[in-house]
Design a protein around this nucleic acid. Sequence first.
DNA 1: GGAATGACAGATATTGAAATCTGTCAGCTG
DNA 2: CAGCTGACAGATTTCAATATCTGTCATTCC
Lengths: 195, 195
Amino acid sequence: MPPTSEALTAERILEATEEVLRRHGPAKATVVDVARALGVSHGTVYRHFGTKAVLREAVTKRWLDRTASTLARFVTEDRGPEDRVRDWLAGLFEAKRKKAGGDPELFATYSVLAEDAGDVVGAHIDELTGQLTEIVRAGVDAGVFTVSDPAVAARALFQATGRFHDPSYAREWQKPGVEAEFEAMVDLLLRGLRG
Amino acid sequence: MPPTSEALTAERILEATEEVLRRHGPAKATVVDVARALGVSHGTVYRHFGTKAVLREAVTKRWLDRTASTLARFVTEDRGPEDRVRDWLAGLFEAKRKKAGGDPELFATYSVLAEDAGDVVGAHIDELTGQLTEIVRAGVDAGVFTVSDPAVAARALFQATGRFHDPSYAREWQKPGVEAEFEAMVDLLLRGLRG
DNA sequence: GGAATGACAGATATTGAAATCTGTCAGCTG
DNA sequence: CAGCTGACAGATTTCAATATCTGTCATTCC
């Protein structure tokens, strides 16, 4: 895949980095590899991304943002708050599970990247809990939920379902019975939201 | 029964193994080290524990059993089911947090051991959720909780609070605000149990 | 002048030979 | 005889030499 002779944009570097990570894995993917894939010297890559860590964080952010934007639609969906909380949580679970099951190696690669990108992951989690908070607040305003602080409740929801979206539990997502466990968890949490 | 100071019992081997693990860490603690600490040849250790993995599992089980027996008292405590669920969950969190904070290296050592001892950990989790199931069932019988299946609810409770007892989250237990997060989580879950 | 290069120093990773460990077992010892 | 030993083979780990990588920057190129 020879690179087009267009300008070397940050975007193109990120795409090349994803490809290199996909091919070599997180341990062996180097900045030199990325430069080689683009047909430039590695010094050039450093003009755009000051360090390898910054480059990896940018790739990680891209990956996480894809999930976040997928879930955004459940926030504004035209359904009751209970259904939207359920859909949102199920959507997150399904998105993660699909990625982990479909290409386990790539998922493992990004899981490793995420471990080294604490700030990016933190912002991602803040965005997700922010989405959840909106739905919970709508439920409180509609009188369906009775929690006192939507943001606190949303964070609890997110943490309680960690087992179904935290990459470190990916192994469990294949086991039979997870579906039922997920349903039971969401049922219990929704009962809690209603009070 | 022969005097413990002379006979080489499984018990003495386990104690020596704990000591070696404490001193060397999980990566460098060898069966040869254990034998040396006991003043015997390593072949002797293998008479009692067929493999290194079995020896480590036994040590891990011992460690986990200590936590389980600490929590058992909350099951039979003379208080309402709500308070007992709260106490039990708080007791688990506190026990783990105290261990992790008090001797981080030792905690990390046992966390590594636990990763390699899937069956032992599974049995431990079954025991803990069993304890929780008893309390939940008592609550249902007393009409305080309205869940349909105490065992399913107990497992959900355990998983939902994973962030506050799973060793992989130990780093978070030191951060300010965890206490509040834990309280919010338990409040939400208890609301769910009541229905 | 802005973009890219490539040589360079220090840090990190790889490699293969040597050392150590795991698990077995024939034989010793009390 | 029951418990223990220590030598052994194959697997794993250590260690030091070697190679590669990261990040910088003076220089080149358009």
